[in-house]
């Protein structure tokens, strides 16, 4: 029985969860939500396992009808016009929606991706252990495609009592930080950093990089006024890559690999985005101008561990409040 009906899909909405690790040796990437903390917090707010399947929306959210009672939660990029049955819908909060509710998420004014978690999680047949859609490969649930009008989705069993929560929401900071207006994205040095010439080094640190229109879940393409000089490192042969790798193709405009990155790559790797900033990479919106700064790998490691600790703490606190019916 359908529990969720897609009335209008928005610009690009897809089913995403924690991703599909463990298959990269077969050329099958992880995929999964680009902004993992936002996914986990949305799930925590409706009492789901943190890795449950939710909807990742891009730039403009979908219009949906719920055919049964459920709590829902919105996180990620701000959706100032989101409505549930004509009432404004708060983000970073658990919202009670009775059966028949219509959710209209509307546009994002900053950032790029928002997450809608529904109590019970979206129940589609997993592929290789994950319900994430790999849009680039066209694989995963829903034949590997984005949501479209007329889709009907099932929802898993509810866990919370009716109207379990009221009136509180999370502080979006530091879980949404606009990449365009805030601190620079932090880069670690990588295999070919030292091979960049002095002018390219200076450009990397001092110039603004515009997020190109053809950026997607595979990667964020950057445009800079004075292209970087490709390092003379001879031919690079393909080797395994990870999200956050900054590749430099011959044209001198770098690419930061995202959640749906290919498992191997052959361009020079001039930097590696610190893991703590991967969620901010997911929020880079075409047209945004971002800046970069170097970070020491041990500091990057500490920052990532700290981010993980506070995320775990927050998710535990949310679970406790839901249990107490607060």
């Amino acid at each position: 029985m359908s529990a969720l009906e897609v009335l209008a899909p928005g610009l690009l909405s897809s089913l995403q969860d924690a991703g599909r690790p463990g298959w990269a040796h077969l050329g099958i990437g992880r995929s999964g939500a680009a902004d993992q903390p936002a996914l986990q917090l949305a799930n925590a707010l409706v009492g789901n396992p943190l890795s449950a399947c939710a909807i990742e929306c891009t730039l403009r959210g979908p219009k949906l009808r719920l055919h049964r009672d459920a709590h829902v939660a919105l996180t990620g990029a701000p959706l100032p016009r989101a409505r549930c049955n004509d009432a404004p819908m708060p983000m970073w909060a658990s919202v009670w929606c009775p059966a028949g509710s219509e959710l209209d998420l509307g546009p994002m004014m900053s950032g790029c991706r928002s997450y809608l978690a529904i109590e019970g999680g979206l129940e589609v047949e997993p592929w290789l252990g994950s319900r994430s859609v790999d849009l680039n490969a066209g694989l995963g649930p829903l034949e590997g495609r984005a949501l479209r009008a007329g889709d009907h989705l099932s929802i898993g069993a509810r866990r919370l009592p009716d109207r379990a929560v009221s009136g509180w929401s999370l502080d979006p900071r530091p879980w949404f930080i606009d990449p365009a207006t805030d601190a620079p994205l932090r880069l670690m040095q990588s295999r070919h950093t030292a091979a960049l010439d002095a002018a390219s080094h200076a450009t990397l640190l001092r110039s603004g990089f515009r997020v190109a229109a053809d950026s997607n879940r595979v990667g964020v393409r950057l445009e800079v006024e004075h292209p970087l000089q490709a390092p003379s490192v001879g031919e690079c042969i393909s080797e395994g890559v990870v999200a956050g790798v900054m590749q430099l193709p011959p044209g001198g405009q770098p690419i930061l690999l995202g959640a749906e990155h290919p498992v191997t790559g052959g361009y020079p790797r001039i930097a590696q985005l610190a893991g703590v900033d991967l969620p901010r990479l997911a929020q880079c919106r075409p047209g945004d101008v971002v800046r970069f700064a170097w970070i020491d790998p041990s500091k990057a490691r500490d920052a990532l561990a700290e981010q993980q600790r506070s995320l775990d703490d927050l998710c535990r606190n949310i679970a406790r409040r839901l249990e107490q019916g607060a």
Binding site: W23, A24, I237, S238, E239, G240, T264
Partner: peptide, 9 residues
């Protein structure tokens, strides 16, 4: 979790 062989790595 992942062990990804390539040509020489």
């Amino acid at each position: 979790r992942d062990l990804v062989p390539a040509y020489a790595s």
